[in-house]
């Protein structure tokens, strides 16, 4: 075990046992925890998926083409995010800002879709109080939307920082952290799209 000792530290301030960025590590621990948060909401949705005693039921109201479009938008925003990070790491500030803005803009568009969807559902008679489908659906997608909204605020803040203080390549970790959070939100949506939309929007088989 002697051979893995770290004798050549840069400073005496603190050790870095694993040689990883502390904040990135913190973000990953948090994301692991957030898996349980969304997991419990998704579990509740699945447990109650056949329990609503009044309509509207999922197959009467979920709209696959519209949600496919918003899924595409969120996936594309993840692509813009990694391109922005890559540009920040290269020091190509103007490209980085463009892609960062694109990410935040696509995220905002996704939120617009969600607001439209919620209004549409309410108009069709589905509110969180209507039945268990409404309660579980709005709670799950609502908390996902809140995560997206927080991410959009974070991204716009970073854009502002890049204009005021600048984000040189050695500070690109600030962008990478926001990126990890953003991709996580995207990944959760992949699960929601699969489980809530594709798999439970079918009419009961004949």
């Amino acid at each position: 075990m002697q051979d893995i000792e770290v004798e050549h530290q840069e400073s005496t301030d603190h050790a870095n046992t694993l040689g990883v960025d502390m904040r990135k590590f913190l973000m990953w621990v948090f994301l692991g925890s957030d898996c349980l948060f969304f997991g419990a909401f998704i579990a509740t949705y699945l447990l109650y998926r056949n329990s609503s005693i009044v309509g509207p039921y999922p197959h009467e109201i979920l709209d696959i083409p519209v949600t496919s479009a918003s899924t595409f938008i969120l996936l594309t925003s993840s692509l813009a995010m990694v391109l922005s990070l890559a540009a920040f790491q290269r020091g190509n500030t103007s490209a980085a800002r463009f892609w960062l803005f694109a990410t935040a803009f696509l995220g905002s568009t996704f939120l617009g879709f969600q607001v439209f969807e919620f209004y549409h559902f309410a108009h069709e008679g589905l509110t969180p109080k209507t039945n268990l489908f409404g309660a579980t659906f709005f709670t799950l997608t609502g908390f996902h939307g809140a995560h997206v909204a927080l991410g959009v605020i974070w991204l716009f803040s970073l854009l502002g920082v890049s204009y005021t203080r600048g984000i040189p390549p050695e500070k690109s970790m600030n962008v990478e952290l926001a990126g990890l959070y953003w991709h996580f939100v995207d990944i959760v949506w992949v699960v929601i799209f699969t489980v809530i939309y594709l798999l439970s929007s079918l009419p009961p088989s004949s």
Binding site: L18, W28, L31, G32, C35, L36, G39, A40, L46
Partner: peptide, 19 residues
């Protein structure tokens, strides 16, 4: 670092198992 995967997939597997 593999620990990042461990934390993330640990949470994911646990959440899936519980569900």
């Amino acid at each position: 670092h593999y620990l990042f995967s461990a934390f993330f997939f640990g949470g994911l597997v646990l959440a899936t198992s519980i569900a």
